[in-house]
Computed example of a mutant assay.
Amino acid sequence: MKKIISIFIACIIITLVGCSGDGHEGEAKTPSGSSVQKGRDYEEVVNEFKEKGFKNMRTEKLEDLVTGWLTKDGEVESVSVDGDQDYSPDQWYSNDVEVVITYHTFPEKEERDTGSDDEKSSAKNDKSKNEKEEKSNSDTKEKSNNDSSAESKPKIVTVENNEDFAAVLAVKDEADPIIGEFAKKNEGRTVEFDGYIANMMLHGNYKTRYNILILAGDYGQTINNGPSFQFKDVNIVSDLKLTGSNIPDTIGTGQNLHITAAIEGYDENSGLFRLDPISTEIR
């Protein structure tokens, strides 16, 4: 009987020693350093830190992705432990220090007074579609009266097939009267031309909708001719409809584009020639 009791006591002592003998009670040890974590999936990094004993985990989003081709959705940008992004691997910390994992992702859709981005985009597309249908009906009626007049108007207006549009893109004064005359005459029709982003700013208080200023030609040219075109209140992903063989994760000032858009109208007060994007090819 004494032998059994001795064995029992010995087991209790071994268990207690095993629980507190490493000298790191209440602590957790870091896995690989921050530079190694960069580029991994953030959920894997979160789980790895939890397995190491860390309890105070926080994730932060960088809503900066457009396509997710080069940088993947959920890809880690940085990891900090107790405020230190240059922490060393296999280093002991109190297990309740804050671990912040920052990762890339797509912008969240914003609910707006007039509906979500998708609803707004759909409404704009419906408006454009209705305008085109009205224009088509008008053209059909005009054709019945004068076939030759209707046949002279191509479906998409370019500088190659429309002398008036070529003249508009060549004007040196962005307030030249021929710009407003052309916009009024061709409202609802589709134009196609090479241009670039001259300026890009958020629309109002929204984080994913922009007012984008477009000029004709290529970025860096010494002389700028033509109107100040504008995409107003657009979402980069749902409204611009980016195409091309090399779509970047983000776009901004200086980006060369090939633009296909419907004419919305010309504002004489601001001097802005507003377009509704149909497709935007990266050049």
Rank of each mutant, 00 (worst) to 15 (best):
N162W: 01
Y206G: 08
A166G: 04
N186M: 13
H203Q: 11
S138Y: 13
M200I: 14
Y210I: 03
V168L: 04
V171W: 02
H203C: 10
A198F: 14
V191H: 08
T158C: 04
V157D: 06
E174T: 07
R189G: 05
K185M: 09
E192K: 14
K184H: 06
A175D: 15
G180M: 02
F193D: 10
M201S: 13
D139P: 08
D194C: 15
K153F: 10
T190G: 00
N199I: 11
A150R: 06
K155N: 09
A167C: 02
A166T: 07
N146H: 04
K143N: 12
S152F: 02
T190C: 13
T140L: 13
N199Y: 10
A150P: 04
F193P: 00
P177A: 06
E181M: 09
M201Q: 15
K185E: 05
V191I: 15
T140R: 00
H203R: 08
D173E: 02
E160L: 07
N137W: 00
A175N: 12
G180Y: 02
K155F: 07
K185P: 07
K185Q: 09
D173S: 05
T208N: 11
S148P: 00
A183F: 08
V171Y: 04
E151A: 09
A175C: 05
T208F: 03
K184A: 09
D164L: 15
L169Q: 07
I156G: 00
